[in-house]
Amino acid sequence: MVDMEQPLATDTNTQPIKNKIHSIIAVASGKGGVGKSTVSVLLAHFLKKRGYRVGILDADIYGPSLALMTKASPPSQEGNTIFPGKSSDISVISVGMFADPNKAQVLRGPMAANLLGQLYRQVAWGELDFLIIDYPPGTGDIQLSLSQLLTVNAALLVTTPQDLALLDVRKAISMFKTLNVPLAGIVENMSYFTCSNCQEKHYLLGQGGGAKLAKEFGLCELGSLPANQDLTRAGDKGLFGDDSYFSPQLLEAIEKVGVSFLGELAKIRPAPNLSSFTLNWRS
């Protein structure tokens, strides 16, 4: 048979809206309640302060937090295009912006995946240096759909120190490895509580879980964040944009996570591979 060499498939931008997103970062855990959303918002503000253009997509359909945590302006819509809400110049989209906060989203997997697809594709993100995807807990339907929908450049994992949390985070690491998503490292959250009277650090949830996990998988421990009333209040009141609410020690801990993250991200070489393509077969 004569070979009919056809041209190579080329990278295509399949999004109907002309967005230009340079890096998609997953903030994930596997475990619920470890502070994925807190880390997402802190990272977004860190990157913003460094001059990057940042957006956050709250991928937690069933328990969206980012509308409350960012107090972003409401999104607007023109035809099928959604313009994201804004909080300190960070673009934010969350199901929580569209739904009654007291009403549950009772949806099966495929419907939830469709909804997420809309939130990604129909949103006019514009040009972003970073789109942070705040993942829901678990390693199931939604996480798989997200990994099919997007080409995630790197995942940052959040854990709390106790073994019980590590159990779930290991599964998330395994999932990202299966899906060929590079891992940027691990943030240990709620690592310690500093007593305001004696200034001593108390390790309420045990010690060294993040480091243990990082060692086990050869990943970087990006840093640890304390259990802290100011962080809790910032989350409840949407105050993350204002550094004056945080102590110098807390700001230092956040800065360390951000700087280590950027360092690790730089090490993930963009390989000369096709990332997103369609090959049309000629009969």
Binding site: M1, M4, E5, P7, N180, I268, N273, L274, L279, S283
Partner: peptide, 17 residues
Amino acid sequence: MSQESLAIKEIWQKNSI
């Protein structure tokens, strides 16, 4: 951290099958 994950460098149609 260096991670060599499997990826596609080139993909093409060689002939009709």
